[in-house]
Simulated assay, not measured.
Amino acid sequence: MHGPKIRFALIILCSIAAAPTWAGNRQRAHEMSARLDCGINLGNALEAYHEGQWGLSLRSEHFDIIRKAGFRSVRVPIRWSSHAQPTPPYTIDPRFLARIDWVVAQALAHDLLVIIDTHNDDMIHKSPQMHTERFLAYWRQVASRYRSAPDTVLFEILNEPHGNLTSAAWNRLIDRTLKLIRETNPSRMVIVGSAEWNGFQQLDNLEIPETDDNLIVTFHYYSPGTFTHQGAPWVPGSSAWLGTSWGSADDHKAVESDFVQVKAWAVRHDRPVLLGEFGAYEKGDPRSRVAWTRAVSSAARRSGFSRMYWDFATNFSLYDVQQNRWRTDLLDAVRADASK
């Protein structure tokens, strides 16, 4: 790794000393959500089976680059299952946990809020009942490890629940996971979204405890998929979408209409909202990608949602690691109306 080695314990102690005192009510969650804006996902690094396999290994300078560009938060997708025992007690490899410590410490050292996000847990999506205890074992270890971390470290229970993890099954898992996390982190800010890939259409089916004020609700936005995922090799049939453009009046109206729905839900439930992922795959034409990104980012900002772009430096990227430079047109679109 490049850059100075930073001791996680020191970062934790210093950050706790500097942390503000909160009233412990719903307002705190709204304020913390606002602090997340504007953020970026460190995608395709630690949620790969092994870091570097999907094109990105995190380095100290990445955090410096991100902060200097005006970003205030990072979301860290993590695949625990590739680094844990396959049988009880499902112990996570201490070396991998130390790597996560390093990432968290780097974020804190660069004045970035950081989201620890369980990502790409394929087994829980396929067989929720069979894998619930394993899933909870991961969170028991993570929650205990970061119990003394500053409030600028947030937890996200699970990225994009889908498959057999239906709304009903997902709501049950949310309940059990939150209770477990609250045993050691009673006031930790936790992020949770709806089933069906964190789609906003399922928000009305999301069940979260009314008495837990320390929650931020997330949704992901990649609509229309025929534009944002054209040519994406992991999406069956996406090669047929190549050449799809975006930017008509109807295209803009569709974004506005979707975000009006999310805003209405947020107001009814008095919950802060994080647009946890949005982006357009690299195969789209550059002008349309910029137009879509600006429209989505601006709509989120006007709606009062915090924003985190997908992703930093791989196939949706804002930053070209080969040329060591930002893609400034996309970067400006992501940061639309953001205060630094």
Rank of each mutant, 00 (worst) to 15 (best):
R327F: 06
A169H: 12
L42W: 06
V74A: 09
N41W: 03
V76E: 06
F8P: 02
R99N: 11
P161H: 12
A169Y: 06
R59T: 03
R7I: 12
R302N: 14
N164G: 05
R325A: 15
L158F: 03
E47S: 08
D213K: 07
H2I: 15
T91S: 14
L330C: 00
D311Q: 03
D93F: 01
V296M: 07
I208R: 02
I12K: 13
S298W: 09
I100A: 04
V76M: 09
I16D: 09
I12W: 12
K68Y: 03
R327C: 00
Y309N: 15
L10R: 10
T87F: 08
L203M: 10
M130A: 15
L165V: 14
W102M: 05
L206H: 07
F305R: 01
P20F: 13
G199S: 11
A195K: 07
N205W: 01
T132K: 10
M130Q: 13
L165E: 11
V192Y: 03
H269Q: 12
I191D: 04
R176D: 09
D121P: 02
G39D: 09
V114N: 00
S127H: 13
H2N: 15
H110I: 02
N214W: 09
S303P: 03
R268H: 12
A266V: 06
I115C: 08
S73H: 11
A300N: 08
M130E: 11
V267N: 05
C38R: 08
T184I: 01
F200T: 07
F71T: 06
L242E: 11
F155D: 09
W265Y: 14
P272E: 10
L203P: 00
V296W: 02
A17C: 10
